[in-house]
Amino acid sequence: MQTVDLSSNFFALFDLPVSFDVDLDALSVRYREAQRAVHPDKFANASEVERRLSVQMAARINEAYQILKDPLLRGRYLLELQGVAPDDADTSFDGAFLMEQMELRERLAEVKNSANPVQQLHVIASDIAVHDKLLITQMASLLSETSTKSLQQARDVSRKLQFFRRLNEEVETLEDELGDY
């Protein structure tokens, strides 16, 4: 079965330089223009071949946009492009980070028993956001260097970001539960 050329990287797809530093406005504009060119809406009454190809191409453009738009996914993608597997871990997390995680998890577990659960959740979500911002800044600077050491450090930062992302998902699940009384 013929598929479209999926070998070009996501940055090249949008004709953007390969870098962690992405102009998000330009990305949005290009994303929309790329979809205008191949979205299935343009091929609804075309041949079966074109309809099939357009679904594949539009899916690829959506994937590229999703990954480049999100700092964590973008960082992981850049690591992959440099030949570093984002989930490899040859170092375990430092003690301070693990403590931080445990503390946040304890606070999350306490939310249901607290006087004002929704408020508590918002505080936890804000704290996570602060951590996120810091880590993303670290990642940006590490990925602008090309040494093996800084790539490995960038990988460690991305793993930390991953933890916070999962924690945030748990916050959202809990928020849904609380909201649907």
């Binding site: 479209v4 223009e33 205008r36 060119a37 191949v38 071949v49 190809l53 191409m57």
Partner: peptide, 28 residues
């Protein structure tokens, strides 16, 4: 006809994305 024209259709789609991207450099 599908077999004969699929490659061509795929190339055209790739091309149309690339020209859309280039077209944008000017607009931005």
């Amino acid at each position: 006809l599908n077999k004969a024209s699929t490659d061509f259709a795929a190339r055209r789609m790739d091309e149309s994305i690339q020209s859309a991207m280039k077209g944008h450099k000017v607009d931005e």
